[in-house]
């Protein structure tokens, strides 16, 4: 018997997590409903005579994605805590980093699914033209989502076995989200305003650097968070 390598084990864990979510759909539906409600509330609180839609929409988009993403990340270690399933993962002869990477991969897919529903809703409510901007927007979403998920997944692991994990996770994670949300919102504003993508390269470089640093750092740090 040969235990699977880092990527094969990560893929097996991600597939398992997605199968569970596909079977229950509870967290996905909650996140989608939360996103839509947030978009609607922002819409009704908006005074279009004071702030234009292109100035407001990027902020609404990233606030919504950040908080709905937290719901997904909280769920990812909740399924392991329920019946002590995390112990079976930890006994398996796979690198413990693969548990983090598998969870993060499943969370990226999950958050992307929520974004796929929420983005058209924002376009409709705020009359934002997506037609010419969808490709650069996709790049921004991907870069920012990877960064948010890396940090959020690590903190979800740390808080999973604490009381009030739902409260503790955002309190710990949101300060680390600022360096992602700020450039993501700025780049989104540039793209939605019809500016060439080259003008957003500085923001994209920040996102890329954050991704590289935090995916690596969180992967390496994860095994230390599960030591008793």
């Amino acid at each position: 018997m040969r235990a699977p390598g880092l990527l094969a084990a990560s893929w097996a864990i991600a597939r398992k997590d997605l199968a569970i979510e596909f079977r229950t759909r509870s967290a996905f539906l909650s996140s989608v409903v939360f996103s839509l409600l947030a978009i609607v509330i922002f819409y009704f609180a908006w005074d279009p005579t004071a702030v234009g839609p292109l100035a407001l929409a990027p902020g609404v988009l990233w606030v919504t994605f950040t908080f709905s993403g937290l719901l997904a990340m909280h769920r990812s270690f909740g399924v392991e805590a329920a019946d002590g399933a995390i112990d079976a993962l930890l006994v398996a002869p796979v690198a413990r980093e693969s548990i983090f990477l598998g969870k993060a991969l499943a969370n990226v897919v999950f958050v992307a699914g929520v974004q796929a529903v929420s983005l058209p809703a924002i376009a409709i409510f705020y009359n934002v033209p997506l037609a010419g901007a969808w490709l650069p927007l996709l790049g921004i979403l991907l870069l920012a989502t990877v960064g948010l998920v890396a940090v959020g997944t690590l903190f979800a692991s740390i808080t999973a076995n604490t009381r009030m994990a739902e409260l503790l996770l955002p309190v710990l994670a949101i300060p680390f989200f600022v360096p992602v949300v700020m450039p993501a919102a700025q780049a989104t504003a540039d793209v939605l305003s019809g500016r060439p993508i080259a003008e957003s390269f500085a923001w994209l470089r920040i996102l890329l650097a954050f991704d590289l640093v935090f995916v690596y750092a969180c992967t390496v740090a994860y095994p230390f968070t599960i030591e008793d």
Binding site: K16, A19, R23, V79, D83, D87, A88
Partner: peptide, 13 residues
């Protein structure tokens, strides 16, 4: 192989 007093199973699967 570990058998615990908790099932260590995923109940949705």
């Amino acid at each position: 192989g570990l058998i615990s007093h908790r099932s260590m199973l995923y109940d949705a699967l």
